[in-house]
Write a protein that binds this DNA or RNA. Structure first.
Length: 271
DNA sequence: CCCGATTCCTGTAGGC
DNA sequence: TGCCTACAGGAATCGG
């Protein structure tokens, strides 16, 4: 499940292979992603020169000479650099052929991702405009969380997943940070003190930074742009570890459904 | 405004 | 062995 660290890992891996290249040809085998792949992509992005790769939340932005490609990996997507002679396999939905015989290939079995094209400022795109601060930007502070949470009764785990509060956090890193900060994922966001949001802020920054250094978390589908998995899953403290001993107190980690998705936590260490 | 439920999709794991 | 079901989840949308 690509969250911020996985998309950042992908961005870093793709950057040297893509920047400066011209897109020679775009092949779309499957238009039916989370939203239809626009036909304008083929018409307008072919022959465009790639200028830069950026990331905003979980979205990769490929800036070109005449517009920007926006790519979301959904929960099962990945991007790889291959030789353009590599035959397509199942779920290889889009190929971007480059002038140097390399190819950027978008693969996404569950088709929760999207590939969009815009000729205006990508940061002003409807998918990006309402996002909160980047968690690794200095504009994200403990105050961001404390202020936004006042009066909110929803579980703090779900509050962290709200991209308009802070961008790019998914279920894995929300659970990890809440464990590191000693906060029960089911606690109402508005009933957590400023002092505890200090700890949560620090935990988020630390876990995201470490995950990026490890190349992200590979549970099932995620692959770096060279095809290799990330290694942060070995460092996960609670996510997916129900029944195993808490790394702090040795009591078993619990799994509980919060909303529609699992929360992992230690009932002794988190309150 | 806020919040929870629902929806999209397919591979995998576990039960029988 | 094979079938069936539950589950994984980002984020838009809808209804209360």
């Amino acid at each position: 499940m690509p969250e911020l660290p996985e998309v950042e890992t992908t961005r870093r891996g793709l950057e040297p292979a893509l920047v400066g290249q011209t897109i020679r040809k775009i092949i779309i085998r499957e238009h039916r992603l989370r939203e239809p792949v626009p036909t304008s992509l083929v018409r307008e992005a072919q022959q465009a020169r790639i200028l830069a790769l950026r990331r905003r939340a979980k979205i990769l932005i490929i800036d070109t000479s005449c517009g920007a490609i926006l790519i979301h990996l959904g929960m099962s997507g990945h991007l790889r650099i291959l030789k353009d002679s590599e035959p397509p396999h199942k779920h290889d939905h889009i190929d971007f052929l480059l002038e140097n015989s390399d190819m950027l290939r978008f693969h996404d079995p569950r088709r929760f991702g999207f590939v969009l094209w815009t000729r205006t400022d990508p940061l002003a795109h409807s998918r990006l405009i309402a996002l909160g601060p980047e968690p690794l930007d200095e504009r994200f502070t403990p105050q961001t969380l404390y202020t936004a949470s006042r009066g909110r009764r929803r579980a703090v785990r779900d509050f962290l997943l709200d991209g308009s509060v802070v961008a790019g956090i998914g279920n894995i890193y929300a659970n990890e940070a809440l464990f590191m900060a000693g906060i029960d994922p089911g606690r109402a966001a508005g009933r957590i003190s400023a002092a505890r949001y200090m700890r949560l802020h620090a935990a988020l920054v630390e876990v995201l930074t470490r995950a990026i250094e490890a190349g992200g978390t590979t549970l099932r589908d995620f692959r770096k742009s060279d095809g290799r998995p990330g290694y942060f899953q070995q460092a996960l403290l609670v996510y997916g570890r129900d029944g195993t001993p808490c790394p702090q107190c040795q009591r078993p980690i619990h799994r509980r459904l919060l909303g529609q998705r699992s929360a992992f936590y230690c009932s002794h260490c988190q309150h």
